[in-house]
Simulated assay, not measured.
Amino acid sequence: MDKTSPSAAAAVADIGHGASVAVGGFGLCGIPSTLISALHTQGATSLRVVSNNCGTDDHGLGILLGAGRIARVTGSYVGENKEFARQYLTGELEVELVPQGTLAERLRAGGCGIPAFYTPAGVGTPLADGGIPWRHHTDGTVAIASPAKETRSFDHRDFVLEQAITCDFALVRAARGDRHGNLVFDKSARNFNPLAAMAGRITIAEVEEVVEPGTLGPDEIHLPGVFVQRVVALTAQQASDKQIEKRTVQL
């Protein structure tokens, strides 16, 4: 039952080339930065990443992206990462854009063993009808476009069928956790972390504070240890290394 790994490097050592990886976080909030750094050092390439976004140019998944180690991204937001946009538009990166709520539910469904579900989000748009560019040619023309999805009417309202997402691995970050893998997330850092963890066949959690089993009350656990296979205890320095995406001050 002791799921602790000796280091982040040991925890990600078996993530191979071409592996699919669900990654928690939202922007730079709650990202598993230590595990991402270890994966960068480890050297796996052609990764297929599922995450709300790809961090920024210099932090989070942006590090792997900048090194050319990501082949495909399933996410909701390109925004703060210019390199992400450049690679997508020049055909270096395949991108499947998904409405944020749909992405969350696809991850949750994968973790719950639900193969697919119907949602009204995207009905009557290219998301359902197909044709959204997934990959471009170098000249900017479309190389691969999204396929049409099944739609169905329930109670005189149309819905589109979305498939669940499961990944080979998942990387997440938690504020507290025990050696059995039970996790607690801090406020907004909870974001996509529990959902990504559920979708991974092997889920690796970096934890700011690791406590003994039984310390966490059942009602305060956000993610049961059944979804977590490896726990990495962060050092004090790693735990405090939290980047701010957009610094604002009040005069």
Rank of each mutant, 00 (worst) to 15 (best):
A164C: 11
F227Q: 00
D158T: 15
T90F: 12
P6G: 08
L47V: 14
K187V: 11
G25D: 10
L195F: 12
D129M: 07
I36F: 10
G217R: 05
I15R: 04
P194H: 09
F84S: 02
G225P: 03
E220C: 07
S46M: 01
Q237N: 10
F185K: 09
V184S: 02
I204G: 01
T34R: 08
T119K: 06
Y118G: 06
P213D: 08
A164R: 02
D186T: 11
G75Q: 08
L61S: 08
L93C: 11
R48K: 15
I204R: 01
E162P: 00
V21P: 02
F227E: 01
Q163E: 11
T138G: 06
P218L: 06
A197D: 06
E212D: 15
S153M: 13
T141F: 06
T56A: 09
S51A: 15
I15V: 14
H222K: 07
I144P: 00
D241V: 03
R247L: 14
G55V: 13
V23E: 10
P120K: 13
Y118W: 10
V78W: 00
V249I: 13
A67L: 05
S20Q: 03
H180E: 13
V228Y: 03
V50Y: 03
S33W: 06
I36R: 05
L28N: 09
A175Q: 09
F117T: 01
Q42I: 02
P6Y: 04
A145M: 06
D186S: 14
G110M: 10
S240K: 13
T90G: 05
T235P: 02
A170T: 13
A109K: 00
S20N: 03
S37I: 04
A145W: 04
Q42V: 04
F26Q: 05
R108W: 01
F169Q: 02
P99C: 08
A22C: 09
K242E: 13
N193K: 09
A233V: 04
C29M: 12
I244H: 04
T138F: 03
L97Y: 09
